Simulated assay, not measured.
Amino acid sequence: MTDVFHALADPTRRALLDRLFLEGGLTLSELAEGAPMTRQGVAKHIAILEAANLVTAEWEGRNKRHFLNPVPLTGIVHRWVGKFEDARLDALAEFKARLEDPTDMDKKDTKRHG
């Protein structure tokens, strides 16, 4: 997972991932179009993204097409974001229950403390 965080730490690599999200299957030359660096610079960033398994590639004849692989991102969401989401959703469910029937919650509090 360290490779994923390292890869995501760079704004250029995040921009490349955004491009692949919008239009997957781009070649290195297509990814370098409009980039603020050389084709070789883009290749180095893509290599880091591939090592982190955030980008996969398929050969189509002589062209290597790059695609976003969202699986490592999903792992981050489940491990780091999910645990905070669960607590927030539990709090919202309790809040909703109190709004709908405040006397019911008073009964539960009495049972816990009494």
Rank of each mutant, 00 (worst) to 15 (best):
residue 1 M to G: 15
residue 1 M to Y: 07
residue 2 T to D: 15
residue 6 H to T: 12
residue 6 H to C: 11
residue 7 A to N: 04
residue 12 T to W: 08
residue 13 R to N: 01
residue 14 R to G: 10
residue 16 L to Y: 07
residue 16 L to A: 00
residue 17 L to I: 06
residue 18 D to N: 01
residue 18 D to L: 12
residue 19 R to T: 11
residue 19 R to P: 06
residue 20 L to K: 03
residue 20 L to P: 03
residue 21 F to D: 08
residue 22 L to S: 08
residue 23 E to S: 13
residue 25 G to Y: 01
residue 27 T to P: 03
residue 31 L to I: 03
residue 31 L to Y: 10
residue 34 G to D: 03
residue 35 A to C: 01
residue 36 P to A: 14
residue 37 M to E: 10
residue 38 T to G: 14
residue 39 R to K: 12
residue 43 A to D: 06
residue 43 A to R: 00
residue 49 L to F: 00
residue 50 E to M: 09
residue 51 A to P: 04
residue 52 A to D: 06
residue 54 L to I: 02
residue 56 T to P: 02
residue 56 T to F: 08
residue 57 A to H: 05
residue 58 E to A: 13
residue 60 E to S: 14
residue 60 E to M: 09
residue 61 G to V: 01
residue 63 N to S: 12
residue 63 N to P: 05
residue 65 R to W: 09
residue 69 N to Q: 09
residue 75 G to Y: 04
residue 77 V to S: 11
residue 79 R to Q: 09
residue 79 R to N: 15
residue 82 G to C: 04
residue 86 D to S: 14
residue 86 D to I: 05
residue 88 R to W: 13
residue 88 R to V: 12
residue 90 D to Q: 11
residue 91 A to F: 07
residue 95 F to P: 01
residue 96 K to G: 03
residue 96 K to H: 10
residue 98 R to M: 11
residue 98 R to E: 08
residue 99 L to Y: 04
residue 102 P to A: 03
residue 103 T to R: 10
residue 103 T to Q: 13
residue 104 D to W: 10
residue 105 M to R: 08
residue 105 M to Q: 13
residue 109 D to A: 12
residue 110 T to A: 15
residue 111 K to M: 12
residue 111 K to P: 08
residue 112 R to L: 14
residue 113 H to K: 13
residue 113 H to L: 14
residue 114 G to M: 08
